[in-house]
């Protein structure tokens, strides 16, 4: 008997999304493999965030079928976690860092005694070990985003959705966090669906890059990124293949604009 190929982590089958009488996305068909790091890239208005929200179960597709590991999406699930771009609004300002991570564990019904060691581990993992008792308002932007990532990891998700998570951070912090997220995803073998408007970020992080075009949002190109892992901020970005893919995608986005 032949082994069946594993179910795709995310399977988009002719997805269309209409919001307010306007078609935002149309004819999206795409399979994301388990453990794959997929980057969705495109100009503003191409529906990339909407596509992420469909996977999160926050927006319902108007047509087509979406399944996660073979099961149709019925709404938000704790197995799928979302890192929002606006970390400042996605954290509870009245809870300290440890308390914010605890929110995800409480939602999962974990007894309080078991939460503590796990929270410590997670905060250490994102480099916030010494900031467990600080409120979000006392943390820098990069630290707040790390905290949100820790809360999402606390869900122990099968799929991690990231919506332009580093868009509001300075270049230095952004590069640090890119490497941290790559390391975390590799360690847990989590499927990552990463939305960005930054072409270089998409190429640097992804196993594949999905380029969308606007009006209405549609698939333009799916590019394999066979660059060696672990990636390196200098070596990877200076690699001739990286530069060639960057030029190729850049031209494509501008021609069809």
């Amino acid at each position: 008997m032949l082994a069946r190929p594993p179910e795709p982590a995310i399977a988009f089958d002719a997805i269309r999304v209409d919001l307010g009488g306007k078609t935002i996305l149309t004819d999206i068909t795409l399979d994301v493999k388990p453990g794959e790091f997929i980057c969705v890239m495109g100009p503003s208005g191409c529906g990339k965030t909407t596509l992420l929200r469909v996977v999160a179960g926050l927006v319902q597709a108007s047509a087509g079928k979406l399944s996660l590991f073979g099961k149709p999406v019925q709404g938000p699930s704790r197995k799928v976690s979302v890192v929002f771009q606006d970390y400042g609004r996605a954290l509870l300002p009245w809870r300290d860092a440890a308390g914010n991570v605890a929110l995800a564990l409480e939602a999962a019904g974990m007894p309080r005694a078991e939460q503590r060691p796990l929270i410590e581990t997670l905060l250490a993992k994102v480099g916030l070990k010494d900031h467990a008792h600080k409120f979000p308002g006392q943390l820098s932007g990069g630290m707040q985003q790390r905290l949100q990532i820790a809360r999402c990891l606390a869900q122990d998700p099968e799929i991690l959705l990231m919506d332009e998570p580093f868009g509001a951070l300075d270049a230095m912090t952004r590069q640090q966090l890119q490497d941290e997220v790559l390391a975390l995803a590799a360690e847990r073998n989590t499927t990552v669906f990463f939305v960005t408007h930054d072409l270089e970020e998409a190429l640097y992080l992804g196993d594949r890059v999905v380029a969308l075009l606007p009006n209405p949002g549609r698939l333009a190109r799916i590019v394999d990124v066979p660059l060696a892992r672990p990636r390196n901020q200098l070596a990877t970005r200076e690699h001739p293949d990286f530069l060639a893919m960057r030029r190729d995608l850049f031209d494509m986005m501008h021609e069809t604009h």
Partner: peptide, 22 residues
């Protein structure tokens, strides 16, 4: 904050838990 309502939905928090914790 609407974003926190979405966080609560993503965590599948119950109505009473949302009222009490958020």
């Amino acid at each position: 904050e609407p974003r926190l309502k979405e966080v609560a939905r993503c965590l599948q928090m119950s109505g009473p838990a949302f009222a009490w914790k958020i």
